[in-house]
Write a protein that binds this DNA or RNA. Structure first.
Lengths: 203, 203
DNA sequence: TTTAATTGTGAACACTTGTTCACAAATTAG
DNA sequence: CTAATTTGTGAACAAGTGTTCACAATTAAA
């Protein structure tokens, strides 16, 4: 049994070596420009070994992406679970997004850039995670509308897209100018909330 | 001379045949999945002929993109040229963007999706057009701040990104649900302006 | 009409890259 | 320690694709 454990553990280690290399390279060069050979080399295995642990390149990339985003959703759900106030919920939602992106900035630098292009046709991503996240965000916004925090004139789905794109845009901008790393990404969450709720107008 | 003209005209016709096919295919399948063979076939020429008119694939794609966006910028500049009021300017800016995207929806369906991924490293796009558009938008927003229409607390560059991303998001959403084509894209410009200026909050 | 120049053609080239597979190495079982 | 099983290896395969080029077809010049 201890043998089986070691075997399994070694297997997991190898898998995780490869995942780590893949994450690093995808982050560095994006999906299209990262080859299986690259990943094998960086993780110091042979090309074929990668296929002992992952079905194919898509599996590797989308598995990674989905894993990360599922994690984000679970964090958000957990943190907002007990909160009743819609505005506070929104605040937490934005903040946790930013904290997560900041923590995983290497990976998301490219993922956010590649944006929707890749996802447009990948079954997994389209069906599984995305819908869940969207569903959660929409329900949160609807709640805010019911509580009178958000104007009911707006379509919640559209609002969800807009909020998501603002977060994405601000994150990308932050990532690109991280030389002057004066401010942390999460420190921008107030700005985003304010912009989303009250707009850019001068009072 | 009339001979020379016919020659040149035929040449332009061929060039435009190819451009048209390219536009159609890029719109349909995106940059990566459109091959020179595809373009040649659709425009009913041989593969090599494409290279008689365009240096390479990049040249074709980015030429097309840049041409379109330069056109958009020129329209915006023209329409806002005589307008003094910052809010009205902003209104026109948004409206003309939407009109343009609606008019060129085939092309932008994919271009917007592919988003920044491709551009990240292409010299031309990075330097030439993008900066001009950004510059114009920023100056417009600064003017709005000076006129007291927009809160000076926000960084104009960030605002420009956010506004751009809202327009992009709403456009993409509209493109994707164009079955229920009840509303035109341009009819959404009020919503965008309102959202951008006053936010989603309930008054 | 014949010759020269231009233009179109698509097969061939060069390269990339995801994936497989026969073989080697290592590990486990007897 | 030997045989059997599992696992790792990287060369080879297959498919795709941007680009070129020798040749053919067409057009212009003489």
């Amino acid at each position: 049994m201890s043998v089986l454990n070691r075997k399994e553990r070694d297997r997991q280690l190898r898998r995780s070596d490869i995942l780590k290399a893949a994450e690093h390279l995808f982050a560095l060069k994006g999906y299209h420009k990262t080859t299986i050979r690259d990943i094998a080399k960086e993780s110091q295995y042979a090309t074929g070994t990668v296929y002992l642990h992952f079905k194919n390149k898509d599996d590797l990339y989308f598995g990674l992406l989905e894993e990360k985003l599922e994690h984000l959703l679970s964090i958000i759900k957990e943190k907002t679970g007990q909160v009743k106030d819609a505005k506070e919920k929104l605040e937490i939602y934005i903040r946790e997004d930013l904290i997560f992106f900041e923590k995983n900035q290497d990976f998301f630098q490219i993922s956010l850039l590649e944006g929707s292009e890749l996802y447009a046709e990948r079954r997994i991503f389209k069906s599984l995670f995305r819908l869940q996240m969207l569903e959660y965000t929409i329900s949160m916004l609807k709640e805010a509308q019911e509580q009178g925090v958000i104007n009911s004139g707006f379509d919640p789905e559209k609002l969800s897209d807009v909020l998501g794109s603002i977060i994405k845009t601000v994150t990308l901008k932050w990532l690109q100018e991280k030389e002057r790393k004066a401010e942390s990404l999460v420190s921008l969450s107030d700005t985003i909330l304010r912009l989303f709720l009250y707009g850019a107008a001068n009072k």
